[in-house]
């Protein structure tokens, strides 16, 4: 697979979104190398390829730097102990969460007839719990970044728990539920965007504007990718389906992807 063959088809279809899709897509990177090249057998010049390469490099950078710093054990004792603490906190949380699910299941069994929808949801969570330590730690770190903000402090102070409305107020994503990497990252992003509403009204508005701009950019980038995967039930099936794609004449998924592309296109323009 030379650069030539890989770059060829980029323009024949709605080229930009397709490039973008792969560029941002961290979890499917292997796919891009193998299946992707097969799919792109069209014909075009190197110019557009180079263009796309540049784009996806800039998009994937934040994704690819992450795992490196996460996997390598920090050399300094301070960070080691911080990590240690987080790991133990996560395990403690996991036990609590299990207990809570158990409790919910018990009450559900007790009053079988008057089952609420939320309870049955909880019991499903029990079977579908994320237990991979690496995933949980990564998620916890993201949550900690969000919580370690003035906005979060202000939010928790101004809006007591019983006042919070789903859909209106930011709700910390549930790290113990199974989500795809992209769906999770998207939830975190949206959560952070919502939290920004509680940013302190500071005099140095410049910083604030910059922050928001950064976030928006990331957000657009993720929405375009994540929109089709947002309904949780589809998370697992979607990447698998696109993996099996060999030619572009496949029926199912591309329709959906197309949809996102059209919704996103105006945002990017």
């Amino acid at each position: 697979m030379s650069d030539w063959t890989r770059g060829r088809r980029s323009d024949s279809h709605s080229s930009k979104p397709e490039n973008r899709k792969r560029g941002v897509d961290g979890s499917l990177r292997a796919n891009r190398e193998t299946g992707g090249s097969g799919r792109e057998n069209g014909g075009h010049t190197d110019g557009s390829y180079r263009y796309s390469e540049k784009r996806h490099a800039s998009f994937t950078t934040p994704e690819s730097t992450g795992p490196v710093s996460r996997c390598s054990r920090p050399a300094d004792w301070g960070s080691q102990v911080d990590d240690d603490e987080m790991r133990r906190d996560v395990h403690r949380d996991m036990q609590r969460y299990r207990r809570r699910i158990l409790g919910a299941e018990v009450t559900q069994r007790e009053r079988k007839t008057s089952s609420g929808s939320s309870e049955s949801c909880d019991s499903r969570e029990g079977e579908n719990m994320e237990t991979d330590e690496a995933v949980l730690l990564r998620r916890q770190k993201q949550i900690n970044y969000g919580k370690n903000t003035l906005a979060y402090d202000r939010y928790t102070k101004e809006v007591p728990k019983h006042m919070r409305q789903p859909g209106v107020h930011p709700k910390t994503p549930n790290k113990f539920r199974k989500y795809s990497r992209r769906s999770w990252d998207q939830q975190i992003k949206l959560w952070k965007v919502k939290l920004h509403a509680w940013d302190p009204p500071t005099e140095d508005g410049q910083d604030k504007v910059l922050d928001i701009e950064e976030l928006d950019l990331g957000d657009v980038m993720d929405i375009e990718l994540d929109f089709p995967t947002l309904p949780d039930s589809q998370n697992a099936s979607l990447p698998a389906r696109s993996l099996s794609l060999e030619g572009e004449d496949c029926s199912g998924t591309p329709v959906k992807v197309q949809k996102t592309e059209t919704t996103v296109e105006p945002d990017m323009a």
Binding site: G78, V81, D82, E85
Partner: peptide, 13 residues
Amino acid sequence: GNVFRRNLLNRLQ
């Protein structure tokens, strides 16, 4: 926060 612990441990190191 854990600024103090972090600094203390790194100094110890």
